[in-house]
Design a protein around this nucleic acid. Structure first.
Lengths: 341, 341
DNA sequence: TTGTATGCGTTATCAT
DNA sequence: ATGATAACGCATACAA
């Protein structure tokens, strides 16, 4: 079933049939012919060939979704969100999992570009990211999700990290904590940076102790890295009574490190995570964490990209989605040394 | 950079350039020209256009990956596995998340077919699955992964469910358990069916009590459904001392139900899961479960599909990947009533 | 408003 | 062994 078949059945020229089916916007085809052509198309079960269309029109109705690691529970909901709104608008998602490897990312992205993707939804942004700058310079439509870039201003949909961290610290302060530590993420990522800065702001606002030993950066957003970092927190008298982790995985690593040191959560030390990842409510104790709707992150990113695709002149900026603390069992009132037991 | 550019740079005709770059198999082009063309292509950074190639050759080098729910931790590793081997062979993965909705599945699959996918990797198979039968009848290349179909014989890569369940029951019997229950999955899925059958076989082999109250099917492979099912297990004297869950999520639901009933895991009741999902080793107690390499499942499925695509006459069957028990903290020696305390 | 012609980048079939 | 040419299915600039 090709366009030519439909045209023949409708008794018009293929070119006319094409216009009848597509560019209604231009309104330069008689409504009677439109009816005839559409009817014929329906009757013949005609379905346009995206390949031919893409080859000719230079658009594919395919969007590339670039993910650092699908195995990280953070990202599947994002992908689902994008996929949902994209497929609703006739687009499909071409998935690329970079495995956190910039080299692999380059390869996969060129493959996507070679396939003439109409745009990219990128969840792999690092603060310094030459590749993204190049792509943007080439005029490729692009929306960042979850993480942002430092070097080049690109449309993005991220979490309101600052608000989330502020709320977390507020919560701990309310419980009487004063020595609060931060388990930061890898400094190359905007999420890590934003949460660290928000933490420092909150600490200053509440005039809490801010020794440099109370901030340790993990090498990656992963359980092991979180445990390793948590082991470097001060112990004994200088030990924090609460830890704000930049991410749930780091918080889980913190659980492990605390257990090794014989410190109980939350009796001896409170722990707060970030993201409200799947299953963290099933841990012992259930993790108090900053909830983020990853799903909504994906949906909004897709919407933003579609907006850009449909009107390249439309203004795009940075959308920050709300983050709210959900209190579970990993935070408790600070033990007051010398106070009531 | 088009093929014509490369041809001009190499001083040959585009047709020749095409042959030089592709059909080496036919060996009908002088090796000197091959060198020249390849050199020119490399120098110019030529990358073939998959759309044009697909339009002409009637293949897209795109494979559709159909997933029931990317949010279920079982599936991301499978997707990654497929994506890894596909991208290694010049293919890309078009992702479709059906959200467990057959209607949505139909839509998404037609979209994939319209895009001329060369084949499908399907993780959504139900035992009775008309859509898959239709597609197979239409000659679409297809490999099932994780789940199989009953009605039509399709190439598949799944877990050796029977072996895994057998080992789990063996382990429990070795710990002295005799009243062992099974938390089965939804009967429409091959994985649920296979695990249930394997459980019954094992029970018979060991001549264990097999009351019908010791098998409860959950409505879905989900935590809530698992908890609901576990609540229906007998309590009191007839209560099982061990539960084999068809899936880790069901096992987690079982944890909850047992906690509600005041029964401790593993002291009062042992629990075994299936899949060795992410984070189940961080639960309290860490879950004893049957480990399956979902990643490998995805890789092998992709390999099988590529084999079919490259040689449609090649024999394909059912590949069963090994499943091995990993013992953690959720299983313990059976309390021997009247025995030593 | 509709028809005509051309080209998107490749590959396959012919001829040389 | 290579060159010439057509065709894959569609969209668009131009002509009518």
């Amino acid at each position: 079933m090709t366009l030519a078949d439909v045209a023949r059945a409708a008794g018009v020229h293929p070119g006319t049939a094409s216009r009848a089916l597509n560019g209604e916007a231009l309104g330069q085809v008689s409504s009677r012919t439109i009816q005839r052509v559409k009817e014929a198309a329906r009757r013949l079960g005609y379905v346009p060939d995206p390949l031919a269309r893409g080859l000719r029109a230079n658009r594919s109705f395919v969007v590339g979704v670039v993910i650092p690691d699908l195995t990280n529970p953070l990202f599947p909901p994002i992908v689902r969100g994008t996929e949902e709104v994209l497929s609703g608008q006739g687009y499909t998602a071409l998935l690329a999992d970079t495995d956190n490897d910039p080299e692999r990312e380059r390869q996969l992205v060129s493959a996507l570009v070679a396939r003439r993707v109409d745009g990219l939804i990128v969840a792999t942004a690092r603060l310094a990211h030459p590749l993204l700058a190049e792509l943007a310079a080439d005029g490729l439509a692009m929306v960042l999700v979850n993480r942002m870039t430092d070097t080049v201003a690109l449309p993005s949909v991220t979490t309101d990290d600052a608000a989330g961290i502020a709320e977390a610290v507020e919560h701990l302060v309310g419980l009487g904590h004063r020595r609060i530590a931060h388990l930061a993420g890898p400094p190359s990522l905007s999420t890590a940076q934003a949460r660290l800065e928000a933490f420092q702001v909150a600490i200053r606002r509440h005039r809490l102790p801010a020794g440099p030993d109370l901030v340790v950066a993990a090498a990656a957003f992963a359980i092991d890295a979180g445990a390793a970092a948590a082991r470097q927190l001060p112990t004994g008298r200088r030990a924090p009574t609460a830890v704000v982790a930049a991410n749930d995985l780091l918080a889980i690593g913190c659980y492990e490190a605390m257990a090794e040191q014989g410190r109980r959560v939350p009796d001896d030390v409170s722990v707060v995570g970030f993201n409200d990842m799947l299953l963290v409510d099933k841990l012992t104790p259930p993790l108090t964490t900053v909830h983020v709707s990853q799903f909504e992150l994906g949906r909004q990113a897709a919407r933003m990209l579609l907006t850009v695709l449909q009107d390249p002149t439309s203004a795009t900026g940075r959308l920050l989605l709300p983050a709210t603390l959900v209190v579970r069992g990993s935070t408790a009132r600070a033990a007051t040394p010398g106070g009531p037991r």
